[in-house]
Computed example of a mutant assay.
Amino acid sequence: MRALILLPLIAGIAGCSSLPADPSRADRAMAEALAGRSAGAPQRCIDRSTVSGPQIVDDHTLIYTQSGRRVWVNTLASACPSLRTDSVLVVRAFGTQMCENDQFQARQPGELIGGAICRLSTFTPYDKPRREKERATPAG
């Protein structure tokens, strides 16, 4: 009976190890997400209801998308060892915003117990420039 209990435990522990991130894949993902965008001033918080994501780039970079024109990049202060591209994040946020220092756990699909507790950092907005037509105000 003990063996039956230990096998799933051992299998779960073995599944926690991850391969090193492919830097070229992470670089490509960042380049694609930020193409044609300019960085703005970092913000402490973003409104959870206006963003989708995250896109997990690597063990220390998350990208949230806001209405196609803006993306928010969160570069964690330190690497989150359980963060992988297929992770599901469980964020401990209070209210309607995600903020710097909010904690989260990365869980793999089918996993009941999350990995290490990690913290969000500041959110840097990257915006597409407005087209000339959008800048013009109608004559009134």
Rank of each mutant, 00 (worst) to 15 (best):
S82E: 01
R2A: 14
R48W: 12
P138T: 10
K133N: 11
A21Y: 07
K128S: 14
S18T: 13
L19R: 15
D58K: 09
A106C: 06
R131K: 11
T50K: 15
A77W: 04
D86P: 01
S38W: 06
A35L: 05
D22M: 05
T137E: 14
P138S: 13
M30T: 06
C45R: 07
L4Q: 10
T122I: 02
A35D: 12
A139C: 08
R2N: 14
P23Q: 14
R92E: 11
E32C: 08
A3M: 09
R44D: 08
F104R: 01
G114T: 06
G40L: 07
D27K: 14
R107P: 08
C118S: 07
L4V: 03
L9W: 05
R44Q: 09
K133E: 14
K128L: 15
T65L: 12
G12P: 03
Q97M: 11
V57H: 10
L9V: 12
D59G: 14
Q108W: 09
L83H: 00
D86H: 12
T85V: 11
V57F: 09
D102Q: 02
S67Y: 12
G115N: 04
D58N: 15
G114M: 04
L83W: 03
S87P: 06
G53Q: 08
L34V: 00
P54N: 09
L9F: 05
I63L: 10
A41G: 04
T65W: 06
D58F: 12
G115C: 08
Y126H: 12
D47F: 15
R48P: 00
A39T: 02
S121A: 14
N74A: 04
I56S: 04
T75L: 04
L4R: 14
D27P: 03
T124A: 02
A29K: 06
R37M: 02
N74G: 05
D27M: 08
E32H: 06
T137R: 15
A31Y: 01
A39R: 12
S87W: 13
L112D: 11
I117Q: 01
D47L: 15
